[in-house]
Design a protein around this nucleic acid. Structure first.
Lengths: 264, 264
DNA sequence: TACCGCTTGTGAACGTGTGCACAAAGTCAG
DNA sequence: CTGACTTTGTGCACACGTTCACAAGCGGTA
């Protein structure tokens, strides 16, 4: 059940600390009993959501090591972010810390999982059983579990029927049927670029609303479908840019006066 | 204490890459001469660099189809961004368009390649020849070419010596020697999480300055090393968040008041 | 040459996200 | 109970990135 207690908005509502006059601009928050959690979820910046996932992993590791509470300082250090940012990120999901003490690890894990929707299983379908697709299928359970790979697809007739990572491969024409039957909520596209859009269309048709795209193409999807892209070529090229920048810097540094000290 | 050096999360597409540690050096009044290109390179926002890589791919496709010139409108549509943003991105690298006409495809390709440092080959080393590492090694030449995989490493003695994708696997103890010899400039970490940091340290020791990390851990590296992270678990969890948000929206839409009722 | 329509390049407004700094709120010792 | 100390939660300011809107500039046309 998990009824949510309507937690109030972060802004001091119960204790009237006589908030100067700065509050004038803020509209009255207390309108309807509009429920917070849902509204709040929408308000979480995408970047913060990605970080929450990282915090979750770090917290799980800490929990395994027997940690009971953590301070924002510890957690932020382990997650590689600044502590203020961490606290702000956590504040998006509510106030679960204790001042002077820190956060209870289990509570934080629970709350983050709830916000990220990890309390429910999300079936994943992988389309394109080539090098990458094969690797993804074999990940088994997928990293962090809670994401069971429950369907595999490919065009190659030789591959259809063959089990990969314990699951039989279906033909992509069966995407709508199989995805619907197995309630796939996330589709992973690992096909060659030319096939990606067609596959994407089929997934959308099958009712899949979230897609993780490894193919180096820009997918066209309806507004209600969420796409995230992982593009190796782009990653490498960005790194290449940094290599080049470094080389240039070094060259410039050399040619210029070597002024070891730069005041600031 | 120093500012934390986070790793950029490599995601392109419509979701803005979670930035972290914008690395702006102190506002040094560097008004020196004007080699432009170097100074300019530093000024390009990370997000824009990632998009340039995308434009490059789209342009290559257009070139193959025989296109000679392209307007910002066409190109931006194909790349899935807004035309103003595209023009601004291109303006970071210079003015290579012709008003009233558009951009010459070949010129644009050349300039983007130059800025991204693609005029030079970047040897890539893949560490961790498991599911993913294997897939990466077999990509051969790596997507977009210009990134030859020239070294493979693993701890497993049974794997050492075995050729994968045409290249023999070395033991990770040989990272420094082999990387130095083959002038590896980009290291790809595809090991299990516990091994990642140690491998990273070895790569850094070998002089590798850019790392693409697939392991779900936050790597600690010296300031002069650039890390980009590709984290499947995070990607899936972000998508999970969107699934949950959608479900909530739908529920709210349907039940109006209701305070909570999450599935079980 | 003068005009017209088209597309670039960019100054400026806007929005979002980050980091700082501090009051609020809790613990613990005496 | 009081006071010292610790850590959260957040208002605020700043910086970055995105978007708008338009002048500048170019090709084509008469």
């Amino acid at each position: 059940m998990a009824a949510q207690r309507g937690q109030r908005n972060g802004v001091g509502g119960d204790t009237p600390p006589a908030p100067t006059a700065a509050e004038i601009t803020t509209p009255i928050p207390r309108v309807a009993e509009v429920p917070a959690a849902r509204e709040r979820a929408r308000a979480i910046p995408e970047a913060a959501v990605a970080r929450l996932a990282v915090y979750l992993r770090v917290l799980s590791a800490m929990q395994e090591q027997g940690a009971v509470t953590v301070s924002s300082e510890e957690l932020s250090a382990a997650a590689g972010v600044n502590s203020a940012k961490l606290r702000k990120d956590l504040s998006y999901i509510g106030s679960y810390g204790t001042r002077g003490v820190g956060y209870e690890v289990t509570v934080l894990i629970e709350e983050i999982e709830r916000i990220l929707g990890l309390t429910r299983k999300h079936s994943v379908a992988v389309v394109g059983i080539g090098n990458l697709g094969h690797a993804l299928a074999n990940y088994g359970g997928f990293p962090g579990r809670g994401f069971p790979v429950s369907a595999l697809f490919d065009v190659d007739p030789d591959l259809v029927g063959v089990p990969v990572g314990g699951i039989a491969v279906h033909h992509i024409d069966d995407i709508p049927a199989v995805c619907a039957e197995r309630e796939v909520s996330i589709g992973v596209i690992a096909t060659p670029p030319p096939a990606a859009q067609a596959v994407c269309d089929r997934l959308v048709e099958a009712g899949v609303q979230c897609i993780l795209n490894f193919a180096p193409v820009v997918l066209q999807v309806p507004d209600h479908v969420e796409v995230r892209k992982v593009d190796l070529a782009v990653e490498l090229q960005v790194l290449s840019f940094h290599v080049a920048r470094r080389a240039d810097d070094a060259a410039a540094m050399e040619g210029r006066q070597v002024n070891g000290m730069v005041v600031s």
